[in-house]
């Protein structure tokens, strides 16, 4: 099976999820990486063991990218086209699938080939239900959920092929302004320890305790959706179905009740500590250690204890 992977570029670097998608593609056949625009990054992409097709187009505009991928898929008779499960990947995959008259599977967490057919697993209903799906279409199009596959080891560079799709004017949505509002570096996917806070922290002031505990532990700060909506911290910190999917060694959930939409984003954590004053909170059902008490009272003491041990 000829499996192609769109390699997303963000701020001059290859997106981790796209590299993980190369591993996913390799489980079903021969993987080829596709870089749209950014010819300077084609060689970097080739280090992950899959040959690279470097497409001459504007890699910033989604309309140009979709048209490019459609051209590659048709010229190379692609059997599969995979994307990282990022915002951009989730925009491009269904559009490409529609153009190739095939189905698309979102947020794939597992893949297997049975009797020549690709079978997918993906979460639905906020993660309480796992679906097993089969795409009967000609081309297998899917987005791969971050953290579901390891990224391939970098090694000897594979071949790079230039590809000119000779696109005409394909842009229907023209970028007129782009801005970065969140400049802090938040690396939840790569974190060893995450301290996350929820509505139970009370207010923005209370949420600062979560940040303080994270600081003394050298941890990243996570948050549930209500916290983002209250504006206590930026959306770059959101964990869960509509945020980041994480798998740290230690996950400390403070004042988080444990709605499935949140906890499904942290289920892969090695060790979960939950702090909540409601002893029946559903977060305790998934926690290795549950601390029953008001997080606003527990956290200052916990911060002191951790400081003492340093």
């Amino acid at each position: 099976m000829q499996a192609f992977v769109f390699i997303e570029v963000k701020e001059g670097a290859l997106v981790q999820g796209s590299l993980e998608a190369i591993t996913a593609a390799k489980t079903i056949g021969d993987a080829t990486a596709v870089v749209v625009g950014y010819p300077e990054l084609a060689a970097k992409a080739a280090e992950y063991g899959a040959p690279v097709i470097c497409v001459k187009a504007d890699g910033a505009n989604p309309d140009e990218i979709v048209a490019s991928l459609e051209a590659v898929a048709k010229a190379k008779n692609a059997d599969a086209f995979f994307f990282a499960g990022t915002q951009l990947g989730k925009d491009l995959a269904p559009r490409l699938a529609d153009r190739l008259a095939t189905g698309c599977v979102t947020d794939v967490t597992g893949l297997e080939v049975v009797d020549g057919a690709v079978l997918y697993t993906r979460p639905a209903f906020g993660g309480t239900v796992i679906e097993k799906l089969k795409n009967h279409g000609k081309v297998q199009v899917a987005t791969i959920r971050s953290g579901s596959f390891d990224k391939p080891a970098a090694g000897a560079a594979a071949a790079v092929e230039e590809f000119d799709p000779a696109l005409g004017d394909v842009v229907k949505a023209k970028i007129v302004e782009a801005a970065k509002e969140i400049t802090e570096a938040v690396n939840l996917e790569g974190a060893d320890i995450i301290v996350a806070g929820g509505r139970g922290m009370g207010d923005a002031e209370g949420f600062k305790l979560v940040e303080e505990l994270a600081a003394v532990l050298g941890a990243q700060v996570g948050a549930s959706r209500p916290v983002i909506e209250e504006g206590w911290i930026s959306r770059a910190h959101q964990i869960g179905q509509s945020g980041k999917i994480v798998a740290p060694k230690l996950y400390i959930a403070c004042g988080i009740s444990g709605a499935m939409q949140h906890i499904s984003g942290a289920m892969a954590s090695k060790y979960i500590v939950a702090i909540n004053k409601d002893e029946d909170a559903s977060i305790f059902g998934v926690a290795d250690l549950g601390i029953v008490g008001d997080a606003k009272q527990i956290l200052p003491l916990l911060i002191e204890e951790v400081k003492k041990r340093k």
């Binding site: 189905g103 079978l119 239900v129 796992i130 097993k132 795409n135 279409g137 499904s264 926690a287 290795d288």
Partner: peptide, 15 residues
């Protein structure tokens, strides 16, 4: 194109 072959529940974590 896409057929649902069945459903499972995710592995439970032990409290």
């Amino acid at each position: 194109f896409v057929e649902c072959l069945g459903y499972t529940e995710p592995p439970k974590r032990q409290a």
